[in-house]
């Protein structure tokens, strides 16, 4: 531990010969405040103005609870699916060489680039009872479109790149020597993967999971087409906000939004903690 020189005192900014600090920071803060902070605090202010009893009544309304449960439940399942397949895809992209690897690698980002409404109608058309995939699943008694399973499918699509892009760079950095050392010491391939490789990848996998989960909870465009949107059954929380808004029920829309925001904020915090922890542990 070093102590700062006493004469330096508290200083907002370290001295620098580079100009433009006041201008750029001032502009950035003003823009951030106008576009993001004031509108968001408006939301918090409005939900605080509701009062505890009203807020609690909206929050514990069965339709609200069901919508939140569906949003968080389907996002959780989709994130788990993405952890399994996203990690596998990252592994294949990092470890194996095959023709067209670059194209496959680029395609992983498709859900980032494809507008959510386009993804929504495309997936719905595929999984509808008469669609290319829906037709094959019908004889198995599996109905995907217009059920919560459809929501999971849409969220798997949306969340995949989050897991792959978080895990992939960490996988690339693994030293071959570590695996070789383990092999020399008599570890089987399975032991090397589960005991040597996986612990190093776990923080990245958890981060990828949280990112995919957080994105899935708030997702709207790709889900509303395939979900069927039955209240209490396949209605997601963001859709309920929109419905309340269309009914001019601003307090309910605000309260549901505030709950979602609070939950996402907690998740963001967890992601940051995990990242700090993984950086400390695995440098």
């Amino acid at each position: 531990m070093t102590t700062a020189p006493a004469q330096a005192g508290w200083r907002f900014k370290q001295p620098s010969v580079i100009p433009g600090f006041g201008l750029t920071l001032g502009f950035s803060l003003a823009y951030l405040t106008l576009i993001i902070l004031i509108p968001l605090s408006g939301l918090i202010w409005r939900s605080a103005a509701l009062g505890w009893t009203d807020f609690w009544a909206i929050a514990t309304d069965r339709r609200t609870l069901n919508a939140l449960e569906i949003s968080f439940g389907t996002a959780f399942i989709a994130a788990v699916v993405n952890v399994v397949f996203g990690t596998l895809v990252a592994w294949v992209l990092v470890r194996y060489r095959f023709p067209g690897r670059r194209i496959v690698d680029a395609m992983v980002d498709l859900p980032f680039a494809l507008p959510t409404a386009v993804a929504g109608i495309a997936l719905t058309t595929l999984y509808a009872p008469n669609g290319w995939i829906g037709k094959l699943l019908m004889p198995l008694g599996l109905k995907v479109a217009y059920t919560p399973l459809g929501i999971v499918i849409a969220l798997v699509f949306i969340g995949l790149p989050f897991v792959v892009r978080t895990v992939q760079p960490i996988m690339e950095e693994i030293d071959k020597e570590v695996e070789e050392a383990a092999a020399t010491l008599g570890a089987s391939r399975f032991q090397i993967i589960t005991r040597v490789l996986f612990p190093g990848l776990a923080p990245a996998i958890i981060t990828g999971f949280s990112l995919a989960f957080a994105r899935g909870v708030g997702e709207y465009g790709s889900v509303i087409f395939i979900a069927g949107n039955l209240p209490y059954k396949s209605e997601i929380a963001p859709l309920l906000i929109v419905i309340r808004l269309e009914e001019y029920n601003y307090p309910a829309a605000t309260a549901i939004a505030a709950i979602m925001l609070a939950l996402s904020f907690v998740m963001l915090l967890v992601v940051n903690l995990v990242q700090t922890w993984s950086r400390k542990r695995y440098g």
């Binding site: 993001i36 997702e219 465009g221 906000i241 605000t254 925001l261």
Partner: peptide, 20 residues
């Protein structure tokens, strides 16, 4: 703070302007 909009549902991003 700059990353904040990424963790907000798009619907909420629209809602805040409706409230304003």
């Amino acid at each position: 703070l700059i990353d904040l909009p990424f963790s907000v549902s798009p619907v909420i991003s629209g809602l805040v302007y409706v409230l304003l």
